[in-house]
């Protein structure tokens, strides 16, 4: 019964979004980004419906809606902090060194996800948030006329009606049936140095629905709350 009430409470609450920021320590003497020109690398969004049976079905319409909404929300959020903002679609930029940098960013992102947010830490990284794309990032900055880049990817599952019904019923027997969750990984790269200056993993509650414009905006706001630009 306790669990049921807790679940209900979470559903009812307006803000159930949690965020988890990692960033370069001030003490590390990294020059702050002169926030004038930004580059938003089009967010990669994959949304699935979680059926009662636990099967994940990709929903193209949700994914596209969310991608559009999230891109708009991020643009709005960033535009208020930056003089110019350009948007890059990674799918048409996979050639040449820019393509290598985009792939390298995925590899660095994966390492950050595992070793900063995961249960295992690298002893060679202890105490310092020290990740970089290298000098090649300058190329991306020059090509796009930007000082920093924001990379965002989002994956989420949404419970179907059947699943929600199941959750309510099962909770009465003390069994927790997760409703699915949406996670967003964001990183800011200083394009003059290639360093990752900030990353954030935001886990959205059921109310911050990025499929809708308002939900995307509220998530973008919490995601980018203390972004160093």
């Amino acid at each position: 019964m306790k669990q049921f009430l807790a679940l209900l409470a979470c559903v009812a609450l307006a803000a159930c979004t949690t965020t988890n920021v990692r960033k370069v320590n001030q003490a590390q003497n990294v020059a702050p980004i002169t926030s004038t020109r930004g580059l938003l690398v089009q967010p990669d969004v994959n949304l699935y419906v979680l059926t009662a049976a636990g099967m994940q079905e990709r929903r193209e319409d949700w994914s596209r809606m969310a991608q559009t909404n999230l891109a708009e929300a991020l643009k709005a959020e960033l535009s208020s902090r930056t003089k110019t903002l350009r948007v890059l679609d990674p799918q048409v930029s996979m050639d040449g060194r820019v393509g290598q940098l985009i792939r390298l960013n995925s590899a660095v992102g994966a390492s950050v996800a595992i070793f900063e947010y995961g249960p295992l830490k690298l002893p060679t990284k202890r105490g310092a948030f020290d990740w970089t794309l290298g000098d090649g990032a300058k190329l991306l900055g020059e090509a796009q006329g930007a000082d920093y880049a924001l990379f965002v990817s989002a994956n989420g599952t949404y419970a179907s009606a059947g699943r929600k019904a199941l959750m309510v019923g099962a909770a009465l027997f003390g069994v927790a049936v997760p409703l699915g969750q949406q996670q967003i990984f964001a990183s800011v790269v200083d394009l003059h140095t290639g360093r990752l200056v900030w990353t954030n993993v935001a886990t959205a509650g059921p109310s911050a629905d990025i499929r809708s414009a308002e939900g995307a905006r509220s998530l973008a706001t919490s995601l980018l709350k203390d972004i160093p630009v």
Partner: peptide, 21 residues
């Protein structure tokens, strides 16, 4: 009971859930 077990095991919304399903 068995059904509930299947759901909680299989559905954290995570990538490796499918193997349980």
């Amino acid at each position: 009971g068995a059904a509930a077990a299947m759901y909680s095991a299989a559905s954290t919304g995570s990538p490796y859930a499918s193997s349980t399903i």
